[in-house]
Design a protein around this nucleic acid. Structure first.
Lengths: 219, 219, 219, 219
DNA sequence: TATGAATGAGTGTTCATTCAT
DNA sequence: AATGAATGAACACTCATTCAT
């Protein structure tokens, strides 16, 4: 009687439902403020069941981070052709990566909020997890800079530390734009527009640097 | 015996000591995880005294954010010459602002962490406070782009929305580099190095855009 | 080992046990001085369970007041025949009501103390709740005076405000006697004795008033 | 400079000011909820000064109760001629006492609230203090009934316990009417009206009882 | 006479987590 | 597979009270 009781559902499915509810709750209220009660209720199950499957709040959050990280990074990898070993000019590669990134963060705002706003700021052990994601994104960019350097025939013009700094700058600007784009309720820019603006801003400087041209304070 | 008992100290001084302790605690553990007990102990006073002066956890955090925001933004304003109404070429202005920014965030890492990692992610009413700070930084950049456009004799080449996007990208990349610089325990880049890398990355693209030159996906 | 651990018990039962403990604690120590810790311990459960079921100290107290009010007023209503619509001479009705009242307050001294000593004096919102109870008792008395007036064929001899005053005087004297009776540890008067004394004191004056006879200061 | 600082004031005066503030605060918020901070502020002095003069919250409250009790009971004593040893018919004496009582409680509502609503309900040691006041009022009434009995030439018609019950009923009805009168914001009855209503209600029954006439349940 | 500075002890409330079914 | 019943530990906040001046 009543449509209240959900049917018995296989574990794998229930787990995903729980993760969906948790991601939304963590995004909305933050890691600490989100309560297991709320998450369980949002998932339409009882709290003990959440514990049976995900064991603890920490593990639950970890699972969220892992899932969201994986889908994001694989979207980027696929777009940049790293998965398939395709060959592409570096700017094309960066452009594709950025488009994929902005498209994904726009499509999954809660997941992105969990990664960017929550996990990074909750101290260990979560910061490390996101650091891994970030490292992968930075690595993509780093590799990209490397192959661009080869194309330009000017390997070694940049110190490793400077490359690291550049990669963080690029990733940071992308993150910032993603948040900006998501927060514009009305008239939000399309992923491609956003990517184009960022390419226009950064690609010339990047090419310059690869050719040894750098900005200097005038006198 | 022992240095346990602090002398009676005027209120204004004690308040600053409390804010120091609170900023560090919030930076280390996050807003929710930092406990008033810990903060009071770190400040060397009893909890009721903290409440007598700062009234609540929320107001305490707000006071931290306000203080750290104020010192940061005034450092930037001073460096960019906005306070004194000086005239400077746009790139020089940007360069000075970035140097001040990286110097300040390096000198006050906890304060920066509170602003960038904590306040932004704790929802209302704190997000709004940091949004104000960010808006001021974005405004500085926006104004700067405007004056650069005038210098280049090409006003109006950029839509307002694109300028907004660019400003967010620039601010985001700076924030990201500040965090990266702070997190490099060994061999940390100097504020000037960091600023130089970022200028090299972004200035060429900015100049291009002001001249109507933008990156386009090849074919 | 030991009878410490109580069995798992259905919610409805536990709630009543909690209310029992709370009523006693509130009666003994007063609303403010009674602590949730004590109440939980007296109920043989942990504090969180009390909160799970009753939500807050205020709601817990409210629930106590509601329960005690309900049992008292229904005892009176039943005795005066208001429930069943019986017809009775007014003095008989008053007599029955008083007997029920004194019997109930003697049987539930803690409940009575919560209503009479605590709820009334703790300001809003509790005062209102007891005001409702009192209003019901006053209304019973008022109706009773009205029907007595009809019996005496002298409707309208008393102003509404004076009836209100009389009702409060009657209710107040009953309340006072209930407390007096409860506080006599040794040789306590039976409910019927108490009721008889009060009837002897008040009924003649009431009859006089209905016939327009009132006391006047001599000369 | 500024009219902020109150002049140095003799101790006796300051103490009365403190008691005034305390009585009002206790009446408004209740014993527990009234805070020493509020009371000190309302009295226009610092908290340590309150402690210097009144020693503790408990002693402060005790002093309030004592002062309010004393003024009330002496008003009654004076009115009933007990102080001066005057001779008066019993009904006249009761009438005078009631008038004095209702006049006093109407003139000092906060003091009456402290006695009737707060002190009685805060458990020991305050309940005892008010019990003393009540005992004095009951004693006045008891003596009055005794002298009325002599007048009527029918000593010993009433058992001591019944007299005690009657006295509590009378006192209770007076208390209840005082509260009722004080709580009627608009169109409040004058003390004399209130007293007249109560006399009309109770005196006939009292006379009857002294003559051995009592109410009996019919059949 | 009078006070700003400071605290120990306690209160109501919440939450992640487990047990028995 | 799933849950109602139950708790230990912590947290924000308040208050009566004292000390140093």
């Amino acid at each position: 009687m009543g449509a209240k009781e959900r049917k018995r559902v296989p574990r794998a499915v229930r787990e995903q439902e729980m993760l969906d509810a948790a991601v939304e709750s963590f995004a909305r209220h933050g890691y600490r403020a989100a309560s297991m009660d709320d998450i369980a209720e949002a998932a339409g199950v009882s709290k003990p069941l959440v514990y049976q499957y995900l064991h603890s709040k920490e593990e639950l959050f970890t699972a969220c981070v892992r899932r969201e990280s994986a889908t994001l990074i694989s979207a980027i990898r696929e777009a940049t052709g790293l998965e398939a070993g395709q060959v592409m000019p570096a700017d094309r590669q960066l452009w594709n990566g950025l488009c994929a990134f902005f498209a994904h963060t726009a499509a999954h705002p809660h997941g992105w909020a969990v990664l960017h706003q929550q996990a990074r700021t909750q101290g260990e052990p979560f910061a490390t997890q996101v650091a891994v994601l970030r490292a992968e994104m930075v690595e993509v960019v780093t590799r990209l800079i490397g192959s661009a350097a080869q194309d330009a025939g000017c390997d070694g013009a940049l110190a490793a530390r400077e490359v690291s700094g550049l990669a963080h700058a690029l990733v940071g600007s992308a993150e910032s734009m993603a948040e900006w784009a998501n927060s514009r309720q009305s008239d939000p820019p399309s992923p491609k527009e956003t990517a184009a603006t960022l390419m226009s801003l950064c690609w010339p400087g990047l090419e310059n640097l690869l050719n040894g041209v750098r900005w200097k304070p005038t006198r």
